[in-house]
Design a protein around this nucleic acid. Structure first.
Length: 113
DNA sequence: GCTCTGACGCCAT
DNA sequence: CATGGCGCCAGAG
């Protein structure tokens, strides 16, 4: 019995998100694709909303395909998401991650799918 | 049991 | 180049 039960779709998303290194970011689509559901990027973001009560899931490190903090609105209503990213060394400009490609963490590569 | 919505992504216009 | 609509899967009403 592991600390994380990967019985459902949520747990799978949490497992990947939890492996995102500090100062790095990934996209919903990248995680979705890694899970085998490339077209279900929405499910990933949706799962994240349910992960708000989880400290193991750094949802602030997950952004959309454009590197924009789309979920910022769900992050307490303030710019908390951007603050968290900048605190980790991620440059963010107007909810847009700078050098997004440089800090992009792809599970398909890092986890070697 | 059916319908609507939803932290996205890509194609069409 | 910008805007809109459809598709995907799963939970909640």
């Amino acid at each position: 019995m592991s600390a994380v039960d990967k019985s459902g779709f949520f747990e799978r998303v949490y497992d990947v998100a939890a492996q995102i290194p500090e100062g790095r970011v990934t996209s919903y689509g990248a995680i979705a694709k890694y899970l085998g559901a490339a077209k279900s990027a929405r499910m990933v973001g949706w799962a994240m909303s349910a992960s708000k009560h989880r400290d193991d899931v750094p949802a602030h490190r997950v952004v959309n395909r454009n590197g924009i903090l789309t979920g910022k609105s769900h992050f307490g209503g303030s710019n908390a998401m951007q603050q968290l990213l900048e605190a980790e060394g991620v440059a963010v400009k107007e909810l847009k991650i700078l050098n997004f490609e440089s800090i992009f963490w792809d599970p398909m590569i890092e986890l070697d799918a």
